[in-house]
Amino acid sequence: MTITQGGPHSTVDQTSAKRGMNLTLRIWRQSNPSVKGKMVTYKVSDISPDMSFLEMLDVLNEQLIMQGDDPVAFDHDCREGICGMCGVMINGQAHGPQQTTTCQLHMRSFKDGDSIDIEPWRASPFPVIKDLAVDRRAFDRIIQAGGYISVPTGTAPEAHSTPVPKKDSDAAFDAATCIGCGACVAACPNASSMLFTAAKVTHLGLMPQGQPERDDRVVNMVHQQDLEGFGGCTNIGECSASCPKGISMETISRLNHDLLGALRAGARPKS
């Protein structure tokens, strides 16, 4: 059978073209950290529901570049939902209406004619670099304060030399899926980084390799997150509900438990 133009397939093409969405975007524009930003309205048309949210922003940026305007700055890297680089507030929700990363959010979550507000993560420890890109090095400094284990590096150790109970390894792995995107801070009414820190404390605290530094780790990491200027946790749960990896509130309870034990045992922050 030969497929000819004007045959049944062209009708399919027409309907799929018709499925393209027209959207109104209100995006936070701020040219550098020292100036005041504002929401700017843009229109994009013919957006495929199969596009990811970032691809939709790419379309907008191509449009802006063609017009000679400054494209919207936003962070992104792997676009596979595993690097933690992307992340914006979409209609008031971190990473938008689905519990996933912004790159894995698809335009099928929106309807033709929708208006979408796009803002950067808002927290004083995450200053805006430009538009939607924020500086998240505060997270790196929390990690540097204790989110590691001190072991000699070299060839990988024999896997059977340190047995780990299945239950613990599963729970540790669940916490280790944190990609440090910052959605927890963005979604928290207090702008607290507790879920991030708790995920790291839980991950390492459940492993045998994490035991020697367990007390110092929790004390120093909590101290660092306070120094960075994050808010305090009031156990609201917005963080966990917005986390693309679904890190549970249990990790926060575990952090608190470890911290109280460590303080009782005399552990004090380094600086």
């Binding site: 209100r26 936070w28 929401m39 507030m89 209609n91 008031g92 929700q93 507000d117 803002e119 808002r122 927290a123 004083s124 420890p125 979604a187 009414p189 207090n190 702008a191 607290s192 200027g229 994050f230 808010g231 305090g232 609201i236 749960g237 917005e238 966990s240 509900a241 917005s242």
Partner: peptide, 17 residues
């Protein structure tokens, strides 16, 4: 908490609060 978020969101939606 106020110090941690001096600039509020234009649009903010609660999910589970």
């Amino acid at each position: 908490a106020k110090r941690a978020r001096p600039e509020r969101y234009v649009t903010k939606k609660s999910v589970v609060q």
